[in-house]
């Protein structure tokens, strides 16, 4: 694309309208943008409305437990400029409330619902925050880093006592199971 450079400088100009923005170009088609949480909707509005980034590819959530923050990453793609902008923002882990971008990008509804279910982040203004995948789950949001799957299983389920007749015969002959599942540790934590 011959006008690629012009377009890029124009995009930089649009982006610098946002205060406190940090732009990093990772490659010719990948741009990383770090922005404060209150400026993100304005940024997306600019990207969609004035810079042709009409395709919301995904919203990813990362739980930074040590920092006490959730990182939300909005990946938007422009069919015309053929580049992808990843907009990173951070929100405090408690109370974990953020604003929906459903009015800017329709597909956000699915991702926000998914993040709400898996991380417990509530998106104000999202059309549907009801359960989707974990319909019968009443525990804490499972994708959070402080959710320990193994501890949850040990607290809520019993190990099955597996002792069929054929196994008893083998044990009588001196054989048997080398490691019982209830003696086995699956993680390397301890």
């Amino acid at each position: 694309m011959t006008e690629g450079k012009e377009l890029t400088t124009w995009l930089d100009k649009v982006l610098t309208e946002i205060e406190g923005i940090e732009i990093r170009r990772k490659s010719s088609r990948r741009l990383r943008v770090d922005v404060a949480a209150d400026a993100l909707p304005a940024l997306l509005e600019l990207l969609r409305g004035r810079a042709s980034y009409v395709h919301l590819s995904a919203i990813s959530c990362v739980d930074w437990l040590d920092d006490g923050e959730f990182e939300l990453v909005y990946h938007v793609w422009s069919y015309e400029m053929q580049s992808l902008v990843s907009a990173h923002t951070r929100i405090p882990r408690e109370p974990g409330i953020y604003i929906s971008v459903y009015d800017i990008y329709t597909p956000a509804a699915f991702f926000e619902r998914d993040i709400h279910e898996m991380y417990g982040v509530f998106f104000e203004g999202s059309p549907d925050m009801s359960k989707f995948i974990l319909t019968e789950w009443d525990g804490p949001p499972p994708m959070r880093k402080d959710f320990d799957s193994e501890a949850w299983v040990n607290d809520h389920f019993d190990w099955q006592n597996y002792n069929p007749e054929w196994l008893q015969e083998i044990i009588a002959q001196g054989g048997g199971i080398a490691v019982r599942p209830d003696e086995q540790r699956f993680s390397r934590k301890q």
Partner: peptide, 25 residues
Amino acid sequence: YVVSNGGEKPYRTHVRGPSQMHAVQ
């Protein structure tokens, strides 16, 4: 979307499948 914190395991992996859009909304 893959995040590493320099460890021997991924810190976060997020897969965006095309069907997540097609099969729901």
